[in-house]
Design a protein around this nucleic acid. Sequence first.
RNA 1: UGGGGUGUCGCCAAGUGGUAAGGCAACGGGUUUUGAUCCCGUCAUGCGUAGGUUCGAGUCCUACCACCCCAGCCA
Length: 558
Amino acid sequence: MTTETTKPEHFIRKILREDLESSKVNKIVTRFPPEPNGFLHIGHAKSICLNFGMAQEFGGECHLRFDDTNPEKESEEYVQSIKSDVSWLGFQWAGEERYASNYFDQLYSWAIELIEKGLAYVCDLTPEQAREYRGTLKEPGVNSPYRDRSIEENLDLFKRMTDGEFDEGAKVLRAKIDMASPNMNMRDPIIYRIRKVAHHQTGDKWCIYPMYDFTHGLSDAIEGITHSICTLEFEDHRPLYDWFIANVTAPAVPRQYEFARLNVNYTVTSKRKLKRLVDENVVSSWDDPRMPTISGMRRRGFTPTSIRNFCEMIGVTRQDSVVDVAMLEYAIRDDLDKNAPRAFCVLDPLPIEITNFDEDAVETLTLAGHPNRDDLATRSVPFTRHIMIDRADFREEANKKYKRLVLGKEVRLRGGYVIRADEVIKDADGRIEKILCTYDAETLGQNPTDGRKVKGVIHWVSATHGKQAEVRLYDRLFNEEAPDRGDVDFLEKLNPESLQVVKGAYIEPSLCEAAPEQRFQFEREGYFVADRFDHATDAPVFNKTIGLRDSWAKIENS
RNA sequence: UGGGGUGUCGCCAAGUGGUAAGGCAACGGGUUUUGAUCCCGUCAUGCGUAGGUUCGAGUCCUACCACCCCAGCCA
């Protein structure tokens, strides 16, 4: 930990600070309100970090509340995955998780209250008719013919809706506000609709379910939420949010604030598009490491810290924006560079025989777990006559820019000796089968004593003591910055090389002890994680999280 | 003239009348047994456009332009 840094004061932070200073509130209470109808993604992470983060920062609390008012689309499975994702990100909600459905009884009596005040009525318009009566963006709507039913009739009809006397769609309860309002949300919005389906939390108790606008603000009021933070598209709903709270005997007056949702280039986050990726088998599942879901990123090897840092880095404003995915990549590299132990893995093995090293000898080298941290455990790496290096690290001839092994030249084996390539052995097709090398026994931990300069360093793994592993190399899913822009379907913009599976990679023996989800830097390659589900000691599987920054690629391609 | 929002560097983003923070990216250079990390440096006479007010404007005023959201019995 370095010295405490003051985080930049975005507008939400400013509002909270001022409300506390002016004693408008004496404790910050926020909430993260997902609908349990899908998996959480990076966009939700921004909201989670904001809501939980602010509460934490100001000594308040944040509730996890499921906005479960549409049982047809929701399920307990999603509830579980959401809870697990929020916890994994490192946040704890105050008390038990809550459900809007916990408040159905209270909400119901408030609906009755609205009817009794002449502020709500039962409407028989069909969905099609309702649409026509609603008007358009530029033309006012027309009052429903059912708008002036008596309070007694409304009470009776609403009761009968509750008792299941009417079919789905036959009747709804609407707030009586203003059909001519320029804000479509105020044109007598629906409060309750009939849905004869079981609810994942309340079972068969109800056949009418409240709508979002009615439920959300009042649930906030019930929970004593002080600041209800949501995304920009709900801005037009704020007058309605306030209306319900003002016209019902609400126990508190929460305020809604809106911020811009997160967009990331080369990425899609709409639920519908993510679902298509899964349904059309573009990816293997919702937690495929290429998915921007929290569970996908977890499997990819992202750390909770890196995601939290990323969310802090991008800020919170009301401007629509598209964050460069390079910032996300920076966040994970930054965390892993500081914390991931180093190890060797040869992805594309090329056999090396060190002709002046004994066939049966095994020299155990002790290597640092991290170049800049001595608190991380060292590891034992066996050095033997037969080793593997990466094919990309050898050339028969090369210019001076190429700092690796070249025929007739020397290179250092990282953490080990300097070797010289003496001879190339090829098969009948001219493919290199093996390199014969000699090592300089005087170069362990020091430069050649005669002053020879060896500038290149490459990684390696003992061919006899190393183990074979499956390594899944992931890259971005899309080739285009804005996959969901334009007329072309986003599935046409897929990166065909977003996954490459390497079966015969060589890993140093110590990596077999890796636990699932343990992260490493494979030196000179990138950051990798032992797969959460598929990795086993006798069948190691690693996922590439992100490569190292690669300035060589720029030189080579220029 | 439907309503509601937003426009500051390639991408995020500070700034709220006193002379354009920071991060990412990019580009130079240094250190380095990871072409990594780290370190140093460069990177907006300019803040959507045009006028205006002012000693002084990204910040105030006026007009315009561009983009986003809203017509689910979804959230």
